[in-house]
Amino acid sequence: MTCDELRLAFHEELGGTPGPGTREHLRTCSLCRAWSASLAAAIRDLETAAIPAMPLDFSRSLAPALVRERRARTAGRWRWVAASLVLLASGAGGWQLGRLLLVRQTEPGPRQARTADILSAPRALPGHADVVPASLGR
């Protein structure tokens, strides 16, 4: 086993039982013996060194902060869904209104409205209640 091979094997075996090849090399090579001792010590330091405790105020505030964020997001999502539904409903109403009115525009008569009026106020066309489907218009 070369010194490079020893180092690779030592990494693989770290924390477990060193193989016979590793033991034999370490017995005869002082360089690798010093290297492996300092590597094992460094890893032991990393594993045993105290990690500063989680600050108490952070630990106490973490879950409530996450719950607040979650509630805010849920509320925000429902607001968005509600707004989308309103837009969708008014859009569909406007489109249906527009379609109906386009048909009626070919028939001369008093029931005419500008497209802008329909789009801006599809649910409140005075005198045109009969062209607004009941489910959308009231």
Binding site: L8, H11, E12, L14, S38, L39, A41, A42, D45, L46
Partner: peptide, 22 residues
């Protein structure tokens, strides 16, 4: 494994430089 082994080596070298390990 390559990254882990390299990281261990960096840690060892650093602690040596700081005089934490002989």
């Amino acid at each position: 494994k390559t990254r882990l082994f390299r990281g261990r080596e960096m840690l060892r070298e650093h602690l040596l430089r700081e005089g934490i390990r002989p």
